[in-house]
Design a protein around this nucleic acid. Structure first.
Length: 271
DNA sequence: TTCCAGGCGTATC
DNA sequence: GATACGCATGGA
């Protein structure tokens, strides 16, 4: 990775990144592809800080972060896009395994985004028994309602009835319950970040609507716990088909990152 | 019309 | 602890 300041923009060089692979692979729900003169341009947010980012040409690894100061690049986006991690090295390790080798080739530009914990809590509660376009729709309406993605203090005292316009269905009561738990102090997100994986998952699962899969998603996507391995219907198929005796040793400590490649691969395999 | 979607709570054994 | 079943909503 390297970068330079160009006027009010940041020019980023990073071979191991594709906007489609990373921003539209189901780990984040607030990025949208918009028309532009470049190969791809996306608009989205980290914690309500907006960003427009372009990928100049397909596969060239050159990106423009529009109207971003060097300070914000180093303080926000370097971290968000996990640019300090060497994904080339990670993938070389993963490639010891035949299935992962194919998955890494297929979704070569996937990176694990370091997202906000509160946003991931809400987003992945909404994700259960739901599809990605609809999850995006619900989150879009949530942001409209609150003028940006709300933190839990903004949702203090919220009832399922007040959340009805989101059309989140039965998940509205889970969001309200989670908000209550955080605002009352009975769920301490910062404390969960410091717990061992199983304890952390167990703590999250005390919230109504959070089971093993959602808990692992929150840990992986919202707390950068790279050893968290969320098992949804797709990864269940991967496990049964390719890893009946467990994951290969080469993913040790990075099970969650491997999961991203596997998820993307298996989901698109049938087509 | 019926089925399904990045699951989970509840009832029942 | 394992296994069925319902669940809001909307697109295919």
């Amino acid at each position: 990775m390297d970068y330079k300041v160009s006027g009010s923009d940041i020019i980023l060089h990073e071979r191991e990144l594709s906007l489609d692979d990373t921003l539209d692979c189901g780990q984040a729900f607030r990025w949208e592809s918009i028309p532009s003169d470049y190969f791809r341009t996306y608009k989205g947010f980290f914690k309500n800080i907006p960003l427009m980012i372009s990928e100049k040409e397909y596969g060239k690894g050159e990106f423009i972060l529009h109207n971003v100061s060097e300070e914000d690049f180093l303080g926000v986006w370097l971290d968000y896009f996990d640019l300090s991690t060497d994904y080339g090295e990670l993938k070389r390790r993963f490639c010891e395994d035949e299935t992962l080798k194919k998955a890494c080739e297929y979704g070569a530009g996937i990176r694990l985004l370091r997202q906000d914990a509160e946003e991931c809590l809400i987003s992945f509660i909404l994700s259960q028994n739901n599809n990605i376009p609809r999850i995006k729709g619900i989150i879009g309406r949530l942001c409209e309602m609150y003028g940006g993605f709300p933190d839990f203090s903004a949702m203090k005292g919220v009832t399922p009835e007040e959340l009805a316009p989101l059309r989140a269905g039965f998940r509205a009561k889970y969001i309200a319950d989670c908000s209550e738990r955080v605002n009352s102090g009975s769920l301490d997100i910062e404390r969960v970040k410091g717990l061992p994986l199983d304890k952390a998952a167990g703590e999250l699962m005390t919230v109504k609507g959070i089971g093993p899969k959602v808990a692992m998603c929150v840990l992986l996507f919202g707390m950068y716990r790279t050893d968290a391995y969320p098992v949804d219907v797709w990864i269940k198929r991967v496990n049964e088909q390719y890893y009946p005796n467990g994951l290969p040793l080469c993913v040790k400590g990075n099970e969650g990152i491997a999961q991203q490649y596997l998820f993307h691969y298996i989901r698109n395999l049938k087509t």
